[in-house]
Design a protein around this nucleic acid. Structure first.
Length: 558
RNA sequence: UCUCGGGUCGUCUAAUGGCAGGACAGCGGCCUUUGGAGCCGUUAGUGGAGGUUCGAAUCCUCCCCUGAGAACCA
């Protein structure tokens, strides 16, 4: 079993520690992850999932999965299913506690009736425009609705009629009677029910009135016995409202809302609306395009759940807005893949090499380790013969002064095989290099006793045995750190035109023919790659998950 | 402009009146049959001005910067 470092503490855990000490919630810790099923989950949700489920795990508590489905016009079962899959894939489990806010529609309705009876809510028959007009502004107080003082009986009657479908969409709303002059505009008699004659993905046409978030959320939390209702910072201003409903209904054992800063990652966007735009307008191939910051995109790209959980622990939880550098995510990924991904040799851009002093028909079996970080992953055999392919980048006709690889008259080691020397550069009539003629030193077979040392070691594949494959090389989707930073500019202006490069004639070790979708490998010296789900027996397709760190690129730049 | 938040190395995050620490990135070195990994070392920060205190990132005052809030969205 691998060592597991504990999740670092944070201000939310401090609050829970204090609540436990003062016995605020009778020693209970119960959280929830409440996505709206109107889009796919992304890495920002992963932060929240790790936070909520992680707290439940560490405090011996529970975490519910709850779909916040109070707006039938935007929500779909497709999203429900993807969300379930993604949370599970991340490694979390809700047992039998998968709920929907729509499960509580009847209770929520009954609570609303109680508010009306207590004179704390009323039916407003203003139009949306009138509502807006009466709301006032940030600096000026609002005006009370002419319907504000309807009798309890009239309100009850109207609310029932609303529920029974007697009115058209938008003609009436139920509003909480709070304070039209509050500096917090959310408290200026917020709408808590609206008429929407729309089919709901779960309740069908049973309801034609639907509760608003601010009303449904605290009550759903209360119904489920949530103790700590953790959400992102933009809901901070909603907290007085959250508390108001619990107070107005005189509910005991109230949950407590705590806000933290959502994740922003450099070179990407996290807005569901914008991600949807990328999908719908075809900038990416779908929600699971490997360039998307969605969980399904990251999964297809080759990210591991472990790496995402470690990332979540590493970035911590706080209240200040932050833009986390994506290299931190990539670090967590490489850290995990380095330990677990088997090594293999693959040549992305092949350059033929003929070893002129090697016997024509000879084939040798070379021994290679599958993972130097973990010898329990075993060894494999590599065929070596007279004709091989190396990476075009591993040869320079006029070498940079710090270039340690192959160049005319120079020696380099072929990993797990021999040291070779470049004797001749063969070109076509246009001057393109077509092949290299090299000689090998038979004394330098890998594992042998030769003391000969060379500066560079390169990867290769044997021409006869290698098989063809396609590689998809991904780069960041945007060219700037914060594509949404400039309100004057559309984020799509910053899409990286080179975010995907497809290479169709890579050569890989024959063993890889067995690879299955999702299998992950390190292509030695190149990076981590995984088999794409669209890969077929005929054509293996590899997604480049992430490159290896490249200190040569830095030297070359200087 | 009003209300509520938030400002600590380049980035993320600790320090809860008592040595400003960690991670990533960077830089330098060691090691290496992956220019990978690993190991060692190192650079770098409390938005500003006052005040309280033996002592302030932390408490107080003012200023500056920044985020959120005027959907029948969540």
């Amino acid at each position: 079993m691998e060592e597991k470092t504990a999740t670092p503490s944070n201000f939310i855990r401090d609050i829970i520690d204090e609540d436990l000490r003062t016995n605020k919630h009778n020693q209970k810790v119960h959280t929830r992850f409440p996505p709206e099923p109107n889009g796919y989950l992304h890495i920002g949700h992963a932060k929240s999932i790790c936070l909520n489920f992680g707290i439940a795990r560490d405090y011996n508590g529970l975490c519910n999965l709850r779909f916040d489905d109070t707006n039938p016009e935007k929500e779909e079962v497709e999203y429900v299913e993807s969300i379930e899959e993604d949370v599970r894939w991340l490694g979390f489990d809700w047992d039998n506690r998968m709920f929907y806010a729509s499960d509580y529609f009847q209770q929520l309705y009954d609570f609303a009736v109680k508010l009306i009876k207590d004179g704390k809510a009323y039916i407003d028959s203003s139009t949306a425009d009138e509502l807006k007009e009466h709301r006032g502004t940030i600096t000026e107080s609002g005006k009370e609705s002419p319907y504000r003082n309807r009798s309890v009986e009239e309100n009850l009657e109207l609310f029932l009629a609303m529920k029974d479908g007697k009115f058209e969409d938008g003609t009436h709303t139920l509003r909480a009677k709070i304070d039209m002059s509050s500096p917090n505009m959310l408290l200026r008699d917020p709408v808590i029910y609206r008429i929407k004659k729309a089919d709901h993905h779960r309740t069908g046409d049973k309801w034609c009135i639907y509760p608003m978030y601010d009303y449904a959320h605290p009550l759903s939390d209360w119904i489920e016995g949530i103790t700590h209702s953790i959400c992102t910072l933009e809901f901070e201003v909603h907290r007085p409202l959250y508390d108001w409903f619990l107070e107005a209904l005189n509910l005991e054992n109230r949950p407590q809302q705590i806000e933290f800063a959502r994740l922003n990652l450099s070179y990407t966007i996290m807005s569901k609306r914008k991600l949807l735009e990328l999908v719908q307008e075809g900038y990416v191939s779908g929600w699971d395009d490997p360039r998307m910051p969605t969980i399904s995109g990251l999964r297809r790209r080759g990210y591991t759940p472990e790496s995402i959980r470690n990332f979540a622990d590493r970035i911590g939880v706080a209240k200040r807005d932050a833009l986390t550098d994506v290299v931190l995510l990539e670090y967590s990924l490489r850290e995990d893949l380095n330990k677990h991904a088997p090594r293999t040799m693959a040549v992305l851009n092949p350059l033929k090499v003929i070893i002129t002093n090697y016997p024509n028909d000879k084939t040798e079996e070379m021994e290679a380790v599958n993972n130097p970080e973990d010898i329990s992953m075993g060894k494999r055999k590599l065929s070596f013969s007279k004709e091989i392919y190396i990476e075009q980048d591993d040869f320079q006709e006029v070498p940079h002064k710090k270039f340690h690889r192959l160049s005319p008259g120079n020696e380099v080691r072929l990993k797990y095989a021999y040291i070779i020397k470049c004797e001749n550069v063969i070109k076509d009539e246009k001057g393109n290099i077509t092949e290299l003629h090299c000689t090998y030193d038979p004394e330098t077979r890998s594992g042998g006793s030769s003391m000969k040392k060379v500066k560079g070691t390169i990867h290769w594949v044997s021409a006869k045995q290698a098989i063809k494959a396609e590689a998809r090389l991904y780069d960041r989707l945007f060219t700037v750190e914060d594509p949404s930073a400039d309100p004057e500019k559309d984020f799509k202006e910053f899409i990286n035109p080179d975010s995907l490069k497809i290479i169709t004639d890579c050569l890989i070790e024959p063993e890889l023919a067995m690879a299955k979708p999702g299998d992950k490998f390190q292509f030695e010296r190149l990076g981590y790659f995984c088999v794409d789900p669209l890969s077929t027996e005929k054509l293996l397709v590899f997604n480049r998950t992430v490159t290896l760190r490249d200190s040569w690129a830095k030297i070359e730049k200087k």
